[in-house]
């Protein structure tokens, strides 16, 4: 099953390749990974989505812990959490169908961030299902380009 790991790491050069390299050499594939700074400049957070059974997850978590730059690992798969992903979607659009697209964008509370003669760039933020659903609906208009961030997630409430 899919697991979401929230991993705090030392903000040092090479840390991303240490983590990514560990997954590949131990035979686990990363579905998505998002890395960014945290409230503490010395620390980065990685949100890693990985497909693994319980045994595999235990092994990969322990191996991750062995990396000197890894400070803390939290499996938030079963936690109440807020989860977001952002996508930019460039869709073919002309005078005729622009209205239809706008309507869909509206329903999804997405945003138009660029308008050109023959295309629109749409920005959407939401959980994976929502982003998937919008992409699905926009396919019929012709998607020219698509870029998605990895998932980021945070546990609800005071716990971190």
């Amino acid at each position: 099953m899919q697991h979401i790991l929230s991993v705090l790491v030392e903000n040092r050069s090479g840390v991303l390749s240490r983590v990514a390299g560990l997954f590949s050499r131990r035979g686990y594939s990363i579905d998505s990974i998002a890395v960014g700074p945290t409230e503490d400049a010395a620390v980065s957070r990685m949100v890693i989505v990985v497909e693994a059974d319980e045994e595999g997850l235990e092994q990969i978590t322990k191996q991750l812990h062995k990396l000197i730059d890894v400070i803390k690992i939290h499996d938030i798969t079963k936690e109440a959490r807020v989860e977001r992903e952002l996508a930019l979607i460039k869709v073919q659009a002309d005078a005729q169908n622009r209205g239809d697209i706008l309507q869909i964008v509206d329903i999804f509370r997405a945003k138009i961030v660029d308008v050109a003669e023959k295309s629109l760039v749409i920005e959407i933020t939401g959980d994976t299902e929502k982003v998937d659903a919008l992409i699905q609906l926009l396919r019929s208009f012709g998607i020219k380009e698509l870029v998605r961030t990895g998932r980021i997630a945070m546990v609800r409430g005071m716990r971190s």
């Binding site: 090479g14 390749s17 390299g21 560990l22 050499r25 990396l67 000197i68």
Partner: peptide, 9 residues
């Protein structure tokens, strides 16, 4: 880079 998988650190 080369020794990342074969060193403790």
């Amino acid at each position: 880079g080369i020794t990342m998988p074969i060193t403790k650190h």
